[in-house]
Computed example of a mutant assay.
Amino acid sequence: MNTNDTRATAFGFGQRKSWVFFAWWYPSIIGFSGAVYALLALIVGQDPGLGTSMMILGAALATSGWVLTLKPRFTRKHPKPASDIPRVDQGIRITPGIIWTVLGGAAILMVLLLLSVPEAASPESLPVLGLLMAWPAGVSAGLAYTRWLMINSGRLYADWSNRG
């Protein structure tokens, strides 16, 4: 741990905010994917049951995550300083590449699926294809927000510290 790095506490604050965010965001991706599935199923005249079940599960898990993070969400306790500043810096640098890899990989897999499985291009497959694209979009949005938290952790920590 580099205790001389003045960013350690700010990064620790960003990591705490990131953990609180992860607790509800990633389960909500299940619900979001389910909503995409249900909407597309209704559009093509299919049963939206799977999507509805996913929405309920995602909402329940996201709510649980939100409730389980009440203490760190509203604490006035100063954060534990980040212990590995070079790793945080690396995460900030490489996250855009990870996001593009996730989105590009999903798009490539979707194209391969559409080209190799003739039934995949039928309207009946639209709900599943939508679900498969909603997942990486949600994960990528979460990664982008986490990166933003870490980049802006100094300002966010200062604002938090100056609150009364």
Score class of each variant (00 low, 15 high):
residue 113 L to M: 10
residue 40 L to A: 01
residue 43 I to S: 04
residue 7 R to L: 12
residue 107 A to D: 09
residue 102 V to W: 00
residue 49 G to C: 04
residue 73 R to A: 05
residue 11 F to Y: 04
residue 65 G to W: 10
residue 79 P to R: 01
residue 8 A to D: 02
residue 83 S to P: 08
residue 33 S to N: 03
residue 25 W to L: 03
residue 72 P to R: 05
residue 23 A to V: 06
residue 93 R to G: 09
residue 91 G to C: 07
residue 85 I to Q: 04
residue 116 S to Q: 14
residue 41 A to I: 02
residue 111 V to A: 12
residue 43 I to W: 05
residue 104 G to W: 03
residue 99 I to E: 09
residue 35 A to D: 01
residue 63 T to W: 10
residue 64 S to L: 15
residue 75 T to Q: 13
residue 32 F to L: 13
residue 39 L to M: 11
residue 96 P to A: 11
residue 23 A to R: 15
residue 113 L to K: 07
residue 16 R to Y: 09
residue 34 G to S: 09
residue 23 A to E: 08
residue 44 V to W: 10
residue 55 M to K: 04
residue 9 T to N: 02
residue 29 I to Y: 05
residue 25 W to P: 00
residue 38 A to E: 05
residue 46 Q to M: 03
residue 39 L to N: 03
residue 109 L to Y: 09
residue 7 R to Y: 08
residue 56 I to Q: 00
residue 84 D to S: 06
residue 60 A to R: 09
residue 98 I to L: 08
residue 38 A to D: 05
residue 72 P to T: 04
residue 116 S to C: 12
residue 101 T to V: 10
residue 60 A to S: 11
residue 63 T to A: 12
residue 59 A to M: 11
residue 38 A to P: 01
residue 98 I to D: 00
residue 103 L to N: 01
residue 73 R to I: 04
residue 24 W to H: 11
residue 49 G to Q: 07
residue 54 M to F: 07
residue 28 S to P: 10
residue 30 I to Q: 03
residue 116 S to W: 14
residue 114 L to A: 13
residue 110 M to H: 13
residue 110 M to S: 13
residue 83 S to V: 07
residue 91 G to Y: 13
residue 39 L to Y: 02
residue 100 W to D: 08
residue 87 R to F: 11
residue 92 I to S: 14
residue 94 I to N: 05
residue 114 L to R: 14
residue 43 I to C: 06
residue 58 G to F: 02
residue 14 G to N: 04
residue 54 M to E: 01
residue 36 V to F: 04
residue 115 L to S: 11
residue 77 K to V: 15
residue 54 M to W: 04
residue 19 W to I: 14
residue 73 R to H: 10
residue 30 I to W: 07
residue 18 S to M: 15
residue 32 F to K: 02
residue 97 G to M: 12
residue 113 L to A: 11
